[in-house]
Simulated assay, not measured.
Amino acid sequence: MSEKKEITTILLAGGQSKRMGKDKAFLKLNGKTFFRIIIEKISKYSNQIIISTNKDKNLYLPDISDLTIHPLFVKDKNPYSGPLNGIISCIPYVKNKFIFIATCDTPLLNPDLIPFLSDKINNYDAVIPVINEKKQFLNTIYTKNALNIANNLYSAGKRSLYAWTNLLNVKEIHQKELEAVKNSLLSYWSINTPEDYTRLLDIWHKYY
């Protein structure tokens, strides 16, 4: 990063994990839960971590009790109402201008994406990666202004990430540019189903 930025990371951990059948935050990879893996990674570049969840924080704290990291846990205003609800629920607690919005189901996240993307935000409201022509609204960087726009949109009864980002001044980063960060594309592989999880474990044991 050419200029150090103070970063808040909002970690979305409030989903129901319906397709997985169990809480994805507590699935394990190489002996660690997805939750702990992501916490360790985002703490590298974040001076504030907020966990958006619908469960008691005491379910999560034992998993990171040995770390010198003290995230803030925030309950969703409307439990299980989607990622935009989780994001806007955290707004009153965000202390930085730049916000990385992460998700618990991408354990292969490369945290070096945080400075890479924040370096490109300049005067934009958000930096949106585009992979295989699909926009990636999570595991990317936003500004506090973007979150305020999300809050207004949600108050108007709209909950779509598409609708939100369509209102923002967005910098798109395409796949070829993202590949400058090692294994960056794997950062956007969401482990949503038992089949995804089995494939992840197979790949991990084969290549890592």
Results as ranks from 00 to 15, higher is better:
Lys5Ile: 14
Lys158Ile: 15
Asn58Asp: 13
Pro111Lys: 06
Leu138Ser: 02
Pro62Trp: 13
Asp76Ala: 14
Ala180Val: 12
Tyr197Asp: 01
Gln136Asp: 01
Asp56Cys: 10
Tyr93Glu: 04
Lys144Asp: 07
Ile7Leu: 11
Val170Thr: 14
Leu84Ile: 15
Tyr45Ile: 11
Asn151Ile: 01
Tyr197Asn: 01
Phe116His: 05
Ser118Ile: 14
Gly14Glu: 08
Ile131Ser: 01
Glu3Cys: 05
Ser65Val: 15
Tyr207Asp: 02
Lys57Trp: 05
Lys158Asn: 10
Leu67Gln: 05
Leu201Lys: 13
Ile131Tyr: 09
Asn110His: 08
Lys41Glu: 08
Ile49Gly: 01
Thr33His: 09
Ala156Pro: 01
Pro115Phe: 11
Leu147Glu: 01
Asp125Ile: 09
Tyr154Cys: 04
Ile101Ser: 03
Leu84Ala: 03
Asp119Asn: 14
Lys22His: 08
Thr33Trp: 14
Pro194Ile: 14
Leu167Ile: 05
Tyr197Lys: 07
Leu138Asn: 01
Asn30Arg: 13
Lys18Glu: 05
Tyr124Trp: 09
Asn58Lys: 14
Lys171Asn: 13
Ser43Arg: 12
Thr33Met: 10
Leu186Ser: 07
Ile88Trp: 07
Leu168Glu: 06
Lys144Ile: 15
Arg159His: 12
Phe100Cys: 03
Lys97Phe: 08
Leu185Val: 11
Gly82Lys: 07
Arg36His: 04
Asn78Tyr: 15
Tyr124Glu: 01
Ile42Gly: 03
